[in-house]
Design a protein around this nucleic acid. Structure first.
Length: 351
DNA sequence: AAAACGTGGTC
DNA sequence: TGACCAAGTTT
């Protein structure tokens, strides 16, 4: 339900956004927006997928490189898998890149290169969940859908002083967010709430003094805002060990492995090696005098810490072992490796 | 429904 | 310096 209180809050928010919206490569400027220009659905989709669990600062350059290399969804759909995975390297959550390509190919093949313009049509596509479907529908197609991301959850929990912990409180927070969603400019409203959460209503030490919603905010009035939203405690991360093997040919090529299309770092290029566990068996890809580098790579994934030992040897002539291939000196680009694999290469380079 | 799934910045 | 956190989705 939407009453005068909600209308007042969303008006405040839009007024603030018109003055303080941050420049982003996927946004259209205020003047063009006022003239009714909407961002291309392809660009909205690409940016929203990149922004899943990822900061604006990290996404900017990736977005620019992707749109320069693949300006349309048809161009992206026609790209080889390895090119897209290589361009995504370093951004993390690589299932996003695999689903991005799947989605582009469905849109190109089954929808004539046009993204569906409804929540229901969008959420049926790979890699598009409730948040992203609502975001694209609102921002690209001006539909009055309500987005619920981490920012919106935090802003709603504080604005209405909701003490129930996430994720159980999601439905209540969504109801509040929906009541605020205007029929006019729903896309700008969605981006306004998220910008507010990212710049003013921050997780720690929110800037309530300069917040456009300081008057109606219950959390601020009651002093609870900085401690909201409550969340279930996180589990601690176990430590796992692993070995990787950097085999370099005299001509400068490297022995590498394309990881299987599912699971950790799925679809990405990497070094052959052991499994990652409490007590991994060393697993050199061929028999040789392997030399263990001094030092180690430490890397933290979402759910475990990894300590990686790096081994190196010269790669002999002849066909590579089963499942592996040689990446030539000029084809090898560290920037196309996931970060943990690039760290292993950096350690080798520094020896 | 809970767990898997990356990374870099921040305090 | 290590925990927390970011414009979530999939299984």
């Amino acid at each position: 339900m939407r009453d005068e209180q909600h209308i007042g809050v969303s008006a405040q928010l839009l007024a603030w956004y018109d003055l303080h919206a941050r420049e982003m490569p996927w946004r259209v400027g205020p003047a063009a927006r006022a003239a009714g220009v909407r961002p291309a659905p392809y660009r909205v989709w690409l940016s929203e997928v990149m922004l899943q669990q990822t900061t604006v600062a990290a996404v900017r350059d990736y977005f620019r490189r992707f749109t320069a290399r693949w300006p349309t969804v048809e161009a992206l759909a026609a790209a080889p898998d390895e090119a897209v995975m290589g361009e995504w390297a370093g951004l993390g959550y690589y299932a996003r890149a695999r689903n991005l390509l799947k989605c582009a190919r469905v849109v190109a093949r089954d929808h004539g290169g046009q993204f569906p313009d409804t929540y229901a049509g969008l959420i049926a596509l790979p890699g598009i969940g409730p948040y992203t479907a609502a975001a694209i529908a609102a921002i690209a197609f001006d539909r009055a859908e309500t987005v619920l991301d981490g920012n919106v959850e935090r802003v709603m929990a504080r604005l209405y002083d909701i003490h129930d912990a996430l994720p159980g409180s999601k439905p209540v927070l969504k109801d509040h967010a929906a009541a605020l969603t205007p029929l006019d400019r729903p896309g700008d409203h969605a981006q306004a709430v998220m910008d507010l959460g990212a710049t003013i209503c921050t997780p720690k030490s929110p800037a309530c003094g300069i917040c456009p919603l300081r008057d109606p905010c219950l959390g601020r009035a009651r002093g609870t805002a900085p401690d909201l939203p409550r969340k279930a405690p996180k589990k601690d991360k176990p430590v796992r060990l692993g070995h990787v093997y950097l085999a370099r040919h005299a001509d400068g090529g490297w022995l590498m492995q394309r990881r299987p299309d599912r699971g950790l770092l799925g679809g990405m290029l990497g070094w052959p090696g052991s499994d990652w566990s409490e007590a991994p068996d060393p697993a050199p890809p061929f028999a040789a005098q392997w030399r263990e580098l001094a030092g180690e790579v430490r890397h933290t994934f979402t759910h475990f810490h990894l300590i990686l030992r790096i081994h190196t040897a010269e790669l002999p002539d002849g066909p590579p072992p089963e499942g592996l291939h040689v990446v030539g000196k000029h084809a090898f680009r560290p920037s196309e490796l996931p970060t943990v694999m690039r760290k292993a290469y950096d350690l080798w380079r520094g020896q």
